[in-house]
């Protein structure tokens, strides 16, 4: 589904990613962990070209998206993204937040999108917030809406960039529940997170990144149970 070859990214002289190779298959839940500044968010943001890689290639469903003649908007319509700071549009109601993209990109008519929005909101228990504005919601509610907004585009893969890092502790659970539901339904997911419990429970594969490279990757039980590299051992010792 997503094929990353020799991906590198630098900001000026600062090399953030160096030579990453990854293959993400349909239905996989890839969880990326690692210390701050390890390049995990940058890697995720390269996948939908919010960051432009400085080297290497990314192929999505057989199409090289790092190539010159790519309609990036069409690609992004199939890749949902959830941000650390939610990034809901404060000038629109929740309903409008969710329906804007499906309607403008021609995926749905307004009435159809409204219906889809309500159905999605019902799934995350926020049906009655459809006409509220983002500022009236709690952090956890905002993030659930942000997930729903991305889902409204019926994406093939969902990218999560530290979705619970900006939340109050008691709101982390409700967001993780939604993500677990999504995982159970078979959505392909790439998740950057500090939630080791989530990584262990949901991940089909966990990547440990440090210094712009993938230091170690494995099934969660193996990676958390028998870390091989010293770097991962010391990281886990600190966070677990």
């Amino acid at each position: 589904m997503i094929d990353v070859k020799n991906l590198s990214k630098s900001f000026g002289d600062h090399q953030v990613l160096s030579g990453i190779d990854q293959h993400i298959s349909p239905g996989e839940k890839v969880v990326i962990i690692g210390p701050s500044g390890s390049g995990k968010s940058t890697f995720l943001r390269c996948l939908n070209l919010l960051e432009t890689p400085t080297g290497g290639t990314i192929t999505f469903q057989g199409q090289e998206i790092t190539g010159p003649k790519v309609e990036i908007d069409k690609i992004r319509q199939q890749m949902g993204m959830v941000f650390q700071h939610f990034n809901l549009f404060p000038n629109m109601t929740i309903r409008k937040n969710i329906t804007l993209a499906p309607v403008r990109t021609g995926l749905m008519k307004q009435a159809e999108a409204d219906e889809a929005a309500i159905a999605l909101l019902r799934r995350v228990g926020l049906e009655e917030k459809a006409d509220a504005y983002p500022n009236q919601l709690s952090g956890g509610q905002k993030q659930r809406v942000a997930i729903v907004r991305a889902l409204a585009m019926r994406p093939k893969v969902m990218l999560f960039d530290e979705p619970t890092s900006a939340l109050d502790p008691e709101m982390v659970g409700e967001v993780l529940e939604v993500m677990k539901d999504l995982a159970r339904e078979g959505m392909t997911m790439v998740v950057v997170t500090h939630e080791m419990g989530f990584a262990r429970e949901v991940g089909s594969r966990v990547l440990f990144m440090d210094g712009g490279v993938i230091v170690e990757e494995n099934e969660p039980a193996e990676l958390f149970g028998h870390p091989k590299s010293e770097r991962l051992q010391s990281f886990l010792a600190k966070v677990l």
Binding site: D73, K74, H85, R104
Partner: peptide, 17 residues
Amino acid sequence: DAGQSEAGRSLGLNYFD
């Protein structure tokens, strides 16, 4: 905030929308 246009673009909206 740059996150606003990133969110819009990540949904597949074009620059002008």
